[in-house]
Design a protein around this nucleic acid. Structure first.
Lengths: 212, 212
DNA sequence: CCAAAAGTGTTGTAACTACACCCATGA
DNA sequence: TCATGGGTGTAGTTACAACACTTTTGG
């Protein structure tokens, strides 16, 4: 492996949906600065490494998550954003189903775990701004592309999808309008299956329709 | 001035509106690689320099344009985008009125001038992709924010504004719908003045309304 | 008076909002 | 049978697209 670029890093916001909560994947930092603090997974880019590859590698090394769909959502380049020296960081965002991966702390991560978005302490550096940027990106994209495909289980009742939308958008949505919209837009496909194990009336299951 | 970051540069797409054409500002490169080719103005970022400041500086040094509103529109980080070594470039875009600035080639620019968007030869490196990215950004933003404020003269007839929209969006717009829209959205304000010097019926002048 | 550009209204459609009740099931 | 979440329809509003003629002026 060649040299790393000292002034360029990638950071990743990985969102997951679990226990009816929207969560982000954080690592506990091993080294100074900010040792033992929870922060976004991130690290340097190598000289001969495409930036997105770097993001994939970093996620794998630090958290065990691999081969997921990543999107660039911003650049963070304040001169003093990192205390030790100038680092410009490129922010990536991904959506995953937590149950799909076994978390595995590695490299400079002491621990990895999912943290509920709304009950986070202050993160180091500019990671709170990064998280905000990622959330805003997510809100923006939500109705444009079927990006939830990696956040929702394969089959789900519509009301669960609605809850997730509400969690992300942070405001309530009218149930009838929501159903009309996702169905008429062809975002989802109704299955001939009903949820089981609920305490009440079973719901029809849907799956996301991905445009060819 | 401190060291430059060898792997990080900024490039700028500056759009201008002149002679009823949408133009981009290009420099003729002084040095290898691609000496004597027209390309986007760009250069390295210094270690202690905020990225946008770098873009402002680079524009001033190369073209004489200064203190304009710049927006980040993308990152170009392909490993081999620049032949000599790895450079990640951050792309900025600006809109200016050509008549407001005197162009002044400096630094590694041999010449500077405005080039009509639709009759450009192939640009070096990935500058064509950058231009496309900037154009797409412009198309996207066009109806969202009054970004034309720096592209149109202070006072203009509505039909000129429409022409500019058509140039950018690359398709025709219905004149009545256009007028209704920009007026009802409060984008423009009608003045008590008419254009002079035209060969036909004078038009009322408008100015852009900037939201507080 | 004529050429050229300025300016003007209506109608249909699609998308969104707001809103309240009955239904099916498991306990 | 009842508590719980699942599921449905209508009406008003707003934004947009399509479309053709009259008006004003300078030459």
């Amino acid at each position: 492996m060649s040299d790393k670029i000292n002034n360029l890093s990638v950071d990743c916001v990985v969102f997951g949906y679990e226990d009816n909560q929207l969560k982000a994947l954080l690592i506990k930092r091993d080294k100074e600065p900010e040792a033992n603090k929870w922060s976004l997974p991130g690290s340097y880019v190598y000289l001969d490494e495409p930036i997105e590859k770097a993001a994939q590698r970093v996620l794998l090394e630090l958290t065990g998550i691999h081969d997921i769909f990543l999107t660039q959502v911003g650049i963070f380049g304040e001169v003093d954003r990192y205390p030790q020296h100038r680092v410009i960081s490129i922010l990536y965002c991904a959506l995953v189903r937590p149950e799909m991966f076994e978390l595995l702390a590695g490299s400079h991560a002491k621990e990895v775990s999912w943290h509920e978005i709304n009950s986070l302490e202050k993160l180091p550096f500019d990671h709170n701004q990064m998280l905000d940027a990622a959330l805003n990106w997510l809100k923006d994209e939500l109705w444009r592309k079927p990006i939830l495909i990696n956040l929702l289980p394969e089959k789900f009742p519509l009301n669960q999808m609605q809850e997730l939308y509400q969690l992300i958008l942070q405001n309530p949505i009218d149930n009838r309008n929501f159903r009309k919209k996702v169905i008429s837009q062809g975002l989802v496909e109704k299955l001939n299956e009903k949820s089981k194990g609920g305490q009440q009336r079973p719901a029809f299951l849907y799956k996301l329709k991905v445009p060819l």
